[in-house]
Nucleic acid binder design. Structure first.
Lengths: 143, 143
DNA sequence: ATAATTAGTTAACTTTGTTAAATATTACCA
DNA sequence: TGGTAATATTTAACAAAGTTAACTAATTAT
């Protein structure tokens, strides 16, 4: 690794640690990160099925089944059996579920705001574009 | 959020997803990410104690105790009772443990290399500096 | 010398993932 | 039309890794 790579490597490690530390097993609004992500998915994909959720999160149907059970019991999502195909249960976020998602967007928006406070507008655009290139390159080489 | 912030927000989400997806519960060299991190810590902090490891990873002593047991049984680390204070066990990485860490550095180096391939030298320095500012700002506001 | 503290372990429990098997429904075809 | 195959979901049994509470052994302090 040359000097530039080494510097990036170190910064990237910091970023990675920061992200992991802030997404670890903890809960906000009485909901874990996993719960949150499932609710968000269902919110964004109204009337989706358990199968779809399992695929989206790359976890097994039984694991999703238990999570959905929890979310229904806690009034965060609703399950409604499809009349067209009674094997299928269409999922929707409840008002309570939607509120948590909407509310939590604020955190991420705050982060974006903080970032824009730390950088000039040009720097921010620059960073976004650079990260975009980086992500494109990495994701591409991993698939 | 203004337009620049929105763009950054989206890129950051991608980055977050990428990092999480590539650090999820999987194993490399027969060792999970948690095992890996503990071995690495012990490698970098030779003769450290279980207590120190627990503190470093912010998990409870019993949890560390079980992990250390596994790592010793799999010949990845060694525990040697201190002669100065027999409550204490000094930890060291075995050759096997060290090999795994050294070897895995390669992955991160490859990522750094890929990044440097996707960007010009100037862009890379630019990105590193921008990310550094960003991380500094965020970490500061969270502590 | 005895009481308090410290490092580490054991036991019991929780969460969240897994695979295998069961259930119910739908699709296909001879 | 009826029987077989496929699909969506759930249940059951298990594993990994975290937790707290209680325990042991060693050290420190009064």
């Amino acid at each position: 690794m040359n000097k530039g790579e080494r510097k990036f490597y170190n910064v990237f490690t910091e970023l990675q640690c920061f992200i992991l530390a802030n997404m670890s097993r903890g809960e906000v609004n009485g909901v874990t990160a996993t719960h949150y992500n499932i609710i968000e998915y269902i919110y964004r994909n109204d009337k989706c099925t358990g199968k779809q959720v399992a695929k989206a999160f790359n976890i097994s149907p039984p694991a999703i089944s238990r999570q959905l059970k929890f979310l229904v019991e806690n009034n965060l999502i609703e399950q409604k059996q499809s009349s067209l195909d009674r094997r299928i249960f269409n999922l929707s976020a409840t008002d309570k579920g939607k509120f948590i998602i909407d509310n939590s967007e604020n955190f991420r928006e705050r982060v974006a705001k903080q970032v824009s406070k730390a950088l000039t507008r040009d720097e921010l655009d620059n960073l976004t574009s650079l990260l975009g290139k980086v992500i494109g390159e990495i994701v591409e080489s991993h698939t």
